[in-house]
Simulated assay, not measured.
Amino acid sequence: MDIRSLDLNLLVIFDAMARLRSVNKAAEAVGLSQPATSGALARLRSVFDDPLFVRSGSRMEPTPRALELAPAVRRVVQTIAGEILQPSGFDPATADRSFTILTPDIGEVAFLPGVLRRIRTQAPNVRLHAVSRPRAAAASALESGDAELAVGFFPDLHKANFYQQALFKTSYSCIASAANAGAGSRMTLKQYLAARHIVVRPDGREHLLDRFLDDKGWHRHVTLELSHFMSLVSILPGTDLIATVPEDIATVVGRHVALKRIELPFKAPQLQVQQYWHRRMQNDAANKWLRSLFYEVNRRDAGAGMPG
């Protein structure tokens, strides 16, 4: 017999008949009319070339062939109902798995601590793997399943096949070492452009501020270019360098070294920090839980700063 010739719905009828030994009771159990159930039984008899169930008094007794088939059919029906047709589920309390998150180094510092505290109580066997990827590689990592979520500023993911959810907006802050005597609380545009700058471009990517200044025709005097924001912790102190960084980075760096904030001589653009996932993960229960967790922990109201 070719399995393609068998309507698997007929196995549900067979299983009900094998258990209930009655066309009427089987019809009620599967939600069909009595004529429809009788028609299905007729098709079953044709498929298996056997009467299968024969009336004996008030019951429909199984033939030897039906008795032989009944255990296997029962297993198939239970497997389809209990495993294949069950909605996808995810129980964080019992889950034992790892999730890969795309985020820059500042994301590890800003986004992960609160998430990890929540995971410790809600999902003790869930593990996170935070990685940084060049801008061009983020999309392919989400598409291939190498990463489940990207969290941060990823303008290249504003395209088809990707979902996005806003977490908060932030702007830029100009920082210098507290010991930098040449840096006051504010400076003119001319002073700002002439100052010695540290520029951080994670994975070599151009940042929103770079494009903003280029569009204005303003060019900074860049003394040092870095790939990691957290390097500012060891480089800024004891120098006359300044850095213009997202507010969260200024907050984190300020927790480790003494800083002074310098008012920017222009209105800086705002960064929209979001989380992104590929469309194939939209209905995945585990991914839903993960992005819900990141949203609950890291979402901020307008104007709110980074939590302590």
Results as ranks from 00 to 15, higher is better:
3 I>M: 11
5 S>E: 13
18 A>P: 01
31 G>T: 15
32 L>H: 13
38 S>V: 00
39 G>E: 12
42 A>M: 14
43 R>S: 12
47 V>Q: 14
48 F>V: 11
50 D>L: 08
51 P>Q: 09
53 F>N: 06
55 R>K: 13
58 S>G: 01
62 P>S: 07
65 R>G: 03
86 Q>P: 03
87 P>L: 06
89 G>D: 08
89 G>I: 08
98 S>C: 15
102 L>C: 11
108 E>F: 01
108 E>H: 03
108 E>M: 07
111 F>G: 01
116 L>G: 00
118 R>M: 08
124 P>M: 02
132 S>Q: 10
132 S>R: 12
135 R>C: 06
149 L>R: 05
153 F>P: 01
165 Q>L: 10
167 L>Q: 05
190 K>C: 00
192 Y>Q: 05
195 A>V: 06
197 H>F: 02
204 G>K: 06
208 L>Q: 09
214 D>V: 13
214 D>P: 00
214 D>R: 15
217 G>W: 01
218 W>N: 03
229 F>K: 00
234 S>R: 12
236 L>P: 04
242 I>T: 10
244 T>G: 01
251 T>A: 14
256 H>R: 15
257 V>F: 14
264 L>C: 03
265 P>A: 11
279 R>V: 15
286 A>C: 07
294 F>A: 11
299 R>N: 14
301 D>C: 11
306 M>L: 15
